[in-house]
């Protein structure tokens, strides 16, 4: 009897083993050809990109239009060009195609607008070595009219609480503070939040985040609130002006989204560039990789900020000021802060 049971169990085990071996979990496979890489890229974006509905993009129509331009013999660089053009249909600075020879990117979110930032002029305001200080990714100084100035050029450059303590302590005697995030193309959200946390004494809800739950264009999770916790270190209590331009993008867009909700903070300059989708990455068969927006961040009204955030006070650099090596926006911010801000 025992032996029979044993044989039955052995047969059952072998059956399960056979089922497991034959039931593979696999993904659609494509050939490493121009057609295969085109189809794979189209599918990655189709299943993971998060702004199809918001931007009213017919991705199937895009497929048909660009598929006609793909031929089996086309050179690699020609394929790269066509795929880059296809991705540009998404009008998204977070969508890039990376190859060894080039990066395809959509840059019209700032190229089609006034620069509103001149690095040479901004450097004149900082002065020469010794006139300003550098704390990790931040350069800072106090202007002669007792207005503090912080230049944060990239949120990819890390900043620690110790750095921020030193910066804010050093500028504590100032009557107001300018935070210049023009041409800051983003980086780490941690750095953006760490800086913003120095300007609130209360926990503030700054927006929502959601993510895709499946390959459908409308499959999203419930938006979850994003909170800004006040820093436990030194917090700034005086007026602040945040300077923005169209190249204030991604994590900088989110920094502005947080700062505009805080008391005593004025957003000044040009509209930000947007870029509110957290980017994910994937790879193609020919070793190119693609980056795309996958997880949208919304504002407190649950609206997308993918196209940017309007300033409280619109200021553009004037040609006359540029000729005179004057930064119109810094000057406007200083004037506002001298008058007490906000």
């Amino acid at each position: 009897m025992k032996t029979r049971i044993a044989y039955l169990l052995a047969v059952a085990a072998l059956a399960f083993a056979a089922i497991s071996i034959s039931s593979c979990v696999k993904e659609d496979e494509f050939d490493n050809t121009p057609e295969g890489n085109f189809e794979l890229l189209w599918k990655i974006i189709d299943e993971h990109y998060c702004f199809f509905e918001y931007k009213d993009i017919d991705w199937n129509e895009v497929h048909d239009r660009y598929a006609r331009r793909i031929t089996p013999e086309m050179p690699s660089k020609a394929l790269f060009e066509v795929l880059g053009e296809m991705l540009a249909e998404l009008k998204d600075g977070h969508v890039n195609l990376y190859a060894a020879h080039d990066v395809a990117a959509y840059r019209k979110w700032y190229e089609d607008y006034p620069s509103n930032f001149n690095d040479s002029i901004a450097r004149l305001y900082l002065g020469k070595t010794g006139d300003y200080m550098t704390a990790a990714g931040i350069q800072y100084k106090a202007f002669a009219d007792n207005i503090g100035y912080i230049r944060y050029a990239s949120f990819s450059d890390g900043i620690g609480d110790g750095n921020l303590n030193e910066v804010l302590s050093s500028l504590a005697i100032c009557d107001g503070l300018i935070i210049d995030v023009r041409d800051n193309g983003g980086g780490s959200l941690d750095n953006a939040q760490r800086l913003a946390a120095r300007f609130t004494d209360k926990r503030v809800m700054t927006g929502y985040i959601m993510h895709k739950t499946g390959p459908g264009h409308n499959e999203f999770s419930e938006p979850q609130p994003v909170w800004l916790e006040p820093s436990q270190h030194i917090r700034w209590q005086k007026p602040v002006v945040v300077l923005t331009n169209r190249h204030s993008y991604s994590a900088t867009n989110e920094f502005v989204n947080m700062m505009r909700l805080l008391p005593g903070v004025t957003i000044m300059g040009d509209k930000t560039g947007g870029g509110s989708g957290l980017p994910f990455s994937a790879e193609l068969l020919n070793s190119w990789s693609v980056r795309f927006s996958a997880s949208p961040v919304l504002d407190v009204a649950r609206q997308h900020i993918e196209w940017g955030i309007d300033p409280d006070i619109r200021v553009d650099m004037t040609a006359e000021d540029i000729r005179a090596n004057r930064d119109t926006m810094i000057e406007a911010a200083r004037e506002l802060l001298r008058q007490g801000g906000v």
Partner: peptide, 16 residues
Amino acid sequence: DYGSSYYEMFYLGYRD
């Protein structure tokens, strides 16, 4: 989750 980032799961703490 399908498109959930590690920022959302581990920095913001949303792990539904």
